[in-house]
C-alpha cells in the first residue's frame, strides 16, 4: 500500500507544471524515504531529478518500494482539476496498475477522486556524481526567467560566464547581441532578492535557450534558483520545493568542435 497526503497540494501542481513540457512520461519511484523521479528528455540533452521527502508529506506510507510509470501529460491534466488550496492524496495498491489522486477542499465539503492507469516504463537511471562546482550562483528565480526569456530573442544559445566580478549572460544572433551582467548584491532587504556567487575558478559555458526556457517553468516553485557550473560538465539548475525537496535540471553544454 502506498499513500501520500499533502496539505499544500499546490506544490505538487507546480512540480507537474515544471516537468510536463520537458518529459512526456516518467516513473515515480516510491520508498519509505519519499518519492523520486529521474528522467531524460527525448533528445537526451537534459535530465530532470525530483525529490519529495517523506517527512515533507502530512501523511506518508509506503509498505514496499514501487515504481509508478505515468504519462505526465495525463497526470498534469488530473492535477489541474485540483484547486490551489486542495489537499492532495496519492494512493496505489502494491503491484497495482492504476493510481488514485484524491483532492479535498480545505473544509472537506468537496472531495474528488481521479484514477489513472500506470505504465510499464523501462527507464534507465544515470548515476550523478557528487561534484564540487567551480561556480555556484544563487539569484531570484523570476530574474533568471526574465534573463533567459529576453536573451532567447537573440539566438538559440546563451553563454553564461562567471567571474569574481559577477555573472554575465550573453546571446548573439541575426538581430544583434545581448549581454546581461549581474553583480553580487551588496545588501538586500529580503534574502530572496539577493544574488550570491561562490566561485572557485572562472567558468564560461554555452547552453541551449530552448531547455533553459523549459526549466524556468519551475519558477513558481521557489523564490530563488541555484545555478552550479564547472568547466565542461552539465549545468545544474535547482529549485527547492518548499522544505520537502527539489527539482534539479541538468543540461549538457554546447561544445566547440
Amino acid at each position: 500500500m502506498f499513500e501520500a497526503r499533502l496539505v499544500q497540494g499546490n506544490l505538487l501542481k507546480k512540480v507537474l507544471e515544471s516537468l510536463k513540457d520537458l518529459l512526456t512520461e516518467a516513473s515515480w519511484d516510491c520508498a519509505d524515504t519519499g518519492i523520486q523521479l529521474q528522467a531524460m528528455d527525448n533528445s537526451h540533452v537534459s535530465l530532470v531529478s525530483v525529490q519529495l521527502r517523506a517527512d515533507g508529506f502530512d501523511k506518508f506510507r509506503c509498505d514496499r518500494q514501487l515504481s509508478m510509470g505515468m504519462n505526465l501529460t495525463s497526470m498534469s491534466k488530473i492535477l489541474r482539476c485540483a484547486a490551489n488550496d486542495d489537499i492532495i492524496t496519492i494512493k496505489a495498491q502494491d503491484q497495482a496498475d492504476n493510481v488514485t489522486f484524491v483532492f479535498e477542499s480545505p473544509n472537506q465539503e468537496k472531495v474528488a477522486d481521479y484514477e489513472m492507469k500506470l505504465m510499464n516504463l523501462d527507464q534507465e537511471h544515470l548515476g550523478i556524481p557528487e561534484t564540487d562546482y567551480a561556480a555556484v550562483i544563487k539569484l531570484p528565480a523570476a530574474e533568471f526567467q526574465r534573463i533567459i526569456k529576453d536573451l532567447s530573442q537573440f539566438g538559440e544559445s546563451v553563454v553564461i560566464s562567471c567571474t569574481k566580478e559577477g555573472v554575465k549572460f550573453s546571446a548573439a544572433g541575426d538581430i544583434g547581441v545581448g549581454n546581461i551582467k549581474l553583480a553580487q548584491t551588496a545588501s538586500v532587504d529580503k534574502e530572496e532578492e539577493a544574488v550570491t556567487i561562490e566561485m572557485q575558478e572562472p567558468v564560461t559555458l554555452t547552453f541551449a535557450c530552448r531547455y533553459l526556457n523549459m526549466f524556468t517553468k519551475a519558477t513558481c516553485l521557489a523564490p530563488q534558483v541555484t545555478l552550479s557550473m564547472s568547466p565542461e560538465v552539465p549545468l545544474v539548475v535547482e529549485y527547492k520545493i518548499g522544505d520537502m525537496g527539489h527539482v534539479r535540471y541538468y543540461l549538457a553544454p554546447k561544445i566547440e568542435d
Binding site: H44, L126, G127, S157, A208, Y250, I255, D257
Partner: peptide, 14 residues
C-alpha cells in the same frame, strides 16, 4: 562549429 552535448555522455548508466 558548436554542437549540443548529450547528457548521457556525462553521467554513467546505473
Amino acid at each position: 562549429k558548436i554542437t549540443q552535448g548529450r547528457i548521457d555522455n556525462f553521467f554513467q548508466r546505473e
